[in-house]
């Protein structure tokens, strides 16, 4: 049965958990994964084959194994790190492997003539990346980076595996204490929606603004 007073009671609790944990992990991990993903994508293209192959293997390994496993392994292997730190690092690294693929697609979409024009102007590799390739590639990559960030956001309940009291864990606890889960879970779901939807709209706006 739906109980509006429970709904109202759970709101501040879950908003607090959302702001303190879910949002912090999502924002920090998004920044980390966007930066690392770019590093991986460039490294895979620039490194000699003997160095690129093992990097590719490690990235594939991370991408093809489940996030909760990473959380647990890192949590127990580095027990001097706080659970929040483990969460940010694991989410950041895990999603960086997806973002690297997106960056790679964006970089591959740049026509060969752009690279050749840069060579013909004798631009060194670093400046070719910075001034010619990345500004165009990132524009193509941005929508998909936004989607990964939203996917990551929705994966934050996995933090329960390392006992970080994020929003869904709190909702479950609240439900357990009051013998009714519907209200708390509805609030949690709404909060996810309220945060994801503007992000998606914002990404679309940004995309349009970057078009030329």
């Amino acid at each position: 049965m739906w109980d509006t007073s429970l709904f109202i009671e759970t709101l501040p609790v879950l908003i607090g958990a959302f702001l303190k944990i879910t949002l912090v992990v999502t924002v920090l991990s998004s920044i980390l994964s966007a930066l690392l993903g770019l590093v991986w994508a460039i490294a895979l293209r620039e490194l000699p084959a003997w160095a690129a192959a093992p990097l590719r293997f490690v990235l594939d390994f991370i991408r093809m194994t489940p996030l909760p496993v990473h959380l647990l392994v890192i949590y127990y292997a580095f027990n001097n790190l706080s659970p929040m730190t483990v969460g940010v690092l694991v989410f950041g690294v895990h999603y960086s492997t997806y973002m690297a693929e997106s960056y790679r697609a964006g970089i591959d979409s740049i026509r060969k003539g752009q690279w050749e024009a840069a060579t013909a102007l004798s631009l060194p590799a670093s400046r070719t990346w910075r001034a010619v390739i990345l500004p165009q590639a990132i524009r193509n990559t941005l929508p998909s980076l936004g989607n990964w960030a939203i996917a990551m956001f929705k994966d934050t309940p996995f933090l329960i595996f390392i006992s970080v009291p994020e929003m869904v864990t709190e909702a479950r606890q609240f439900g357990g204490q009051h013998f009714s889960y519907v209200e708390a879970m509805t609030v949690a779901g709404l909060l996810f929606l309220v945060a994801s939807y503007p992000t998606a709209v914002l990404m679309r706006k940004l995309e349009k603004k970057l078009a030329y």
């Binding site: 026509r111 003539g113 752009q114 024009a117 013909a120 001034a131 165009q136 524009r139 030329y212």
Partner: peptide
């Protein structure tokens, strides 16, 4: 050496 390409290859974002 300078080169001019068939497809111009200008940088579209600049």
């Amino acid at each position: 050496i300078g080169m001019v390409f068939q497809q111009f290859n200008l940088f579209p974002h600049l």
